[in-house]
Simulated assay, not measured.
Amino acid sequence: MTAYDLAGLHLEESGHDGPLVLCLHGIGSSSAAFAPQTEALAAHHRTVAWDAPGYARSADPEQEMTLDDYADTAAEVVRARGTEAHVVGVSWGGVIALRLATRHPDLVASLTVADSTPGSGTSPEKAAAMRARVPELEHLGPRAFAEQRGPRLLSEDAPPELVRRVVDTMADSVRPPGYASAAESMARTDLRGELARVTAPTLVLCGEKDRVTGPEASQVLAGGLHKTAYVIVKDAGHLANQEQPEHFNAWLLSHLHIVTNTRTMKG
């Protein structure tokens, strides 16, 4: 049993054959964030992107969820498909993915962690800033909250239509119950002590112009992991997978290809 009823979880699925790829979005987003990746993966992979509990079309959690709860819910999504998954996590989704890899290593074939962080619990200041977002959302409402925060997720050179799409996705996805639970899970988390326990081969990517978590946080992740490659995505902000999808997808597909071939040779 998990802390969240999977019957209330909305999943976007594409592709029919090939290895499973599970996509976990950031704290202000939804499954819609992975449209550029699901299209690129569809020919040779089965892709599942979730609306996290309390986001977009997924039901609100009945109780506050910890990072372990999110990881366990993701594990059940994978387990229900009778296989293991290549897990792609952006920002908060990357934090969930890393915890998933330490709690359920048998379900994780590889990780791709983009523009992420060890968590907001690495300092009292970061934890307080994360918790402060919740009353801000409650006061402003989803639309004004998204208008204020959304543009910073991209580089200053991002095209206006992409900025609008990111803002609209956030406005349509966030609600206080789900966002509050996600923010608290981040505020309580510091992954630095458990990174060495991750056994899955991991690709760490970060937008060159990430103004939210920044390359420094991704470097901490890459430095703490054993089987890792670290890539800077040029001309991209915090949402590198959406701002530079061709470059992002090229690295992702290469990583999946290398992992799959390596496992085949060992098998």
Score class of each variant (00 low, 15 high):
2 T>R: 10
5 D>N: 11
7 A>Q: 13
9 L>K: 05
10 H>G: 04
12 E>P: 06
15 G>R: 03
15 G>V: 04
17 D>Y: 13
19 P>V: 14
19 P>I: 08
20 L>N: 08
22 L>S: 05
24 L>T: 03
30 S>F: 02
33 A>T: 11
33 A>R: 07
34 F>R: 00
36 P>Y: 08
36 P>R: 03
37 Q>E: 15
37 Q>G: 04
40 A>G: 10
40 A>N: 10
42 A>F: 06
44 H>W: 09
49 A>F: 06
49 A>K: 04
55 Y>M: 12
58 S>E: 04
58 S>G: 08
63 Q>D: 13
64 E>G: 12
66 T>K: 06
67 L>Q: 01
67 L>A: 07
69 D>P: 08
72 D>Y: 10
75 A>K: 05
76 E>R: 12
76 E>N: 09
83 T>V: 14
88 V>A: 03
90 V>K: 00
92 W>R: 05
98 L>D: 06
100 L>R: 03
102 T>S: 09
107 L>G: 01
109 A>C: 10
110 S>D: 08
111 L>R: 00
115 D>C: 10
117 T>L: 09
119 G>A: 05
121 G>Y: 06
122 T>G: 15
122 T>L: 12
122 T>W: 11
123 S>L: 10
127 A>Y: 01
127 A>Q: 02
130 M>F: 00
133 R>H: 11
135 P>D: 15
136 E>C: 11
137 L>V: 09
140 L>E: 13
141 G>T: 14
141 G>E: 15
143 R>W: 07
144 A>C: 14
145 F>C: 05
146 A>F: 04
146 A>K: 00
147 E>G: 04
149 R>H: 09
150 G>I: 04
152 R>G: 11
153 L>H: 06
154 L>N: 01
154 L>V: 05
158 A>D: 04
162 L>D: 03
163 V>F: 08
165 R>L: 06
167 V>M: 03
168 D>K: 07
168 D>E: 15
169 T>G: 09
170 M>Q: 12
172 D>R: 13
172 D>S: 13
173 S>G: 08
175 R>T: 07
176 P>R: 11
179 Y>N: 05
180 A>Q: 08
180 A>R: 00
183 A>D: 05
185 S>C: 13
185 S>L: 07
185 S>Q: 05
190 D>M: 10
194 E>L: 03
197 R>S: 11
199 T>S: 14
200 A>W: 00
201 P>M: 12
202 T>I: 02
205 L>A: 07
205 L>R: 00
206 C>Y: 01
206 C>R: 05
210 D>P: 04
211 R>T: 10
213 T>N: 08
214 G>P: 07
218 S>D: 07
219 Q>R: 14
224 G>M: 10
229 A>E: 12
231 V>H: 05
233 V>N: 06
233 V>W: 03
235 D>K: 01
236 A>E: 00
237 G>I: 00
240 A>K: 03
241 N>A: 07
242 Q>Y: 03
243 E>T: 07
244 Q>H: 10
247 H>Q: 14
248 F>A: 04
250 A>C: 12
256 L>K: 02
261 N>I: 12
263 R>G: 01
263 R>V: 12
264 T>A: 15
265 M>A: 15
267 G>Q: 13
